[in-house]
Amino acid sequence: MAPIISIQRVSKKYRGGFQALKDVNLDIHEGEIFALLGPNGAGKTTLIGGICGTTNISSGKILVDGKDNVKYFRHTRSLIGLVPQEITLSAFETVWDNVNFSRGLFGKGPEPDYVEQLLKDLSLWDKKGNMLMTLSGGMKRRVMIAKALSHKPRILFLDEPSAGVDVELRRDMWQHVHKLRQSGVTIILTTHYIEEAEEMADRIGVINKGEIILVEKKQELMKKLGTKQMSIELATPLEQVPPELSNFEVKSEEGRLIYYYDPKKADTGVSKLIKTLSQIKLEYTDINTKQSSLEEIFVELVKK
């Protein structure tokens, strides 16, 4: 199946000479949740701007629904809803008017029942008559999402949707995003919260210094790059790692020994390590293992 968005050799150089994107190639599949991760200044927002029309790309091509997003901008933009990183709202309008304004910009006439349901889904219905400047930060963030969904887009961009949002609202938002995906909407989100990508994404792309350095299904990425960590709680804390353990990648940390290993290897070293602990009579009270998180994988990737 043809991708819903196809980014082909896209580069962007700003007027000051800063190269924000370098020859980026990326396909987004219809109906998926794609998380784009990257540190500040990596090019995430520039890439979204290029797709949505808020930024002019320097070279390359972007196809949305198989059509060039510059030549057929009316068609391609009509499919997209954008929630930008910054909360940007006019201060003196009501929630209801402002959401309907966004709908009108996309050429859609009034549809009060749909807008009412949208506001109810986002817990904004009781605020519909409030002026935007009187809303809290979290409520404003919800309004931004309502605006982006007001014209029923097939593709939704969420640029750092959880920035400055409390845990409860974040959970609500994730639930809403899952519901949207179930209804067939393709979702592209950029985030600093690895937890968010881990929770929601089907596929993950990592961008750094304007280059896509990795695109992978979330589970495969975790499997491929994730190391495991074994934590051994010691009966008596050690000041330093005993010399008998020097062959193992072990470090002593707050009364524990931490051992990193690759679970895919035939010889993980786990049984040898436990045998050695018995031989040197080092007593321990507990052992647990855990898969490294996406955050740890991401930090490793960006460091390279």
Binding site: C52, T76, T88
Partner: peptide, 14 residues
């Protein structure tokens, strides 16, 4: 100034 121009630039309008 407020940044709301993003909406106009990303809408299907010329």
């Amino acid at each position: 100034f407020t940044g709301t121009i993003y909406e106009i630039l990303s809408a299907p309008i010329s």
